[in-house]
Design a protein around this nucleic acid. Structure first.
Lengths: 205, 205
DNA sequence: GTCTATATGAGGATAGAC
DNA sequence: GTCTATCCTCATATAGAC
């Protein structure tokens, strides 16, 4: 496929623009990132940028697409299966969350989300649906199964999910802030695990 | 005190600048708020602003001073006293938190905090110390007393505090986002109370 | 303390040669 | 696809008259 190869070479700059832009956006935000700065880091002139994207906003939208694309999901089967084991389910979920928190690419996207959350309505909506609702839904299914099997005390699965998720988010926020300043996250390194332990003791029968 | 009165009249514009600036900052962030916009809403020319503040940054710093000034604290005595009653302590704390969440002035400041959190190192540090450490400390004292009185199961008071606080923060975040878009917060209106209920069931003996 | 006028610069974007 | 040159707008900030 020589054609494919050619295409890849042709889009090399485009990819580079995207990569560098995402880093700058995650550091300085949308307004704090100028097309000039992007171009200079890519190694081309500002005007050349416009051969690939028609505006700065188009670049941002392209970058923003990736914010919620993290392949974070327990498969349906996996939920049912591990929910039977109770704590294992919580542990798996939290460890996935921890992985995302420390993963460089996801960290970058999470920063952009935080920086632009109040400046961008679409991001807020996606935050609510993808970060919150989606996870509450997954967790609820797990907790529901656990209740049916008398592994945990009864209650509203949605409330329990909310409680479990909120702490995960808070840990992630704190880790992200510390890492933003290149500070040690030692004090939080086992916080995810501690959360699972505490939470399981809270709900198990 | 005619002198005092005079001073107040003289600082009328200055106060107006501060108030309008804080609203604009809480809506559009630091970069998104121009001195032009501030001046126009105050009803004077840009240049006149500089009679009161030497730069836009100075205005922001003045505004930012108020972010962490919320008179949020249970008095030492109150902690000891209500901690003896267990759940009452949690309830009081959560209701104070809820009050701040829905208070217009504190909401404005919380927005600024969110918008500028990743752009301003001082804010990050204050967030960690004032929003997190300070509250964890207050809560820990309460939980410690409860443990001593065998009201709750034993464990690390810091961990329990972390768990309790993180959910409060998350609710506040969600409420703030919804209100930013003038959306209903009905679904979250009793979330603070539900949190207290759930949490107390989780730790009580 | 506020105004007009102006300096100075940053940033987004386009035209046209190569 | 990239370059040089250029335009336009918006933003911070200052000088000096009233």
């Amino acid at each position: 496929m020589p054609e494919n190869t050619t295409i890849h070479k042709r889009t090399g700059t485009k990819q580079k623009i995207l990569k560098i832009s995402s880093t700058l956006f995650s550091e300085y935000g949308y307004k704090g990132t100028s097309v000039r700065k992007i171009a200079s880091q890519v190694g081309i002139r500002e005007s050349a940028i416009y051969n690939h994207y028609k505006s700065k906003e188009e670049i941002f939208l392209e970058v923003a697409k990736d914010i919620f694309s993290s392949p974070f999901s327990l498969e349906q089967d996996e939920i049912r299966e591990s929910a039977m084991k109770g704590k294992t389910f919580l542990h798996k979920f939290a460890m996935q969350y921890k992985l995302l928190t420390f993963d460089k690419r996801n960290e970058k996207m999470f920063r952009i989300l935080l920086i632009e959350l109040l400046q961008n309505k679409v991001l807020r909506e996606q935050f609510m649906s993808d970060f919150h609702d989606k996870n509450v839904k997954i967790l609820s299914e797990g907790f529901f199964i656990m209740m049916q099997n008398s592994l945990i005390r009864s209650g509203d699965p949605m409330i329990i999910s909310y409680e479990f998720l909120s702490t995960l988010f808070y840990i992630r926020l704190q880790v992200t802030l510390l890492r933003f300043d290149s500070l040690s996250t030692n004090s939080l390194s086992t916080q995810f695990e501690k959360h699972v332990d505490f939470f399981w003791e809270s709900i198990k029968i």
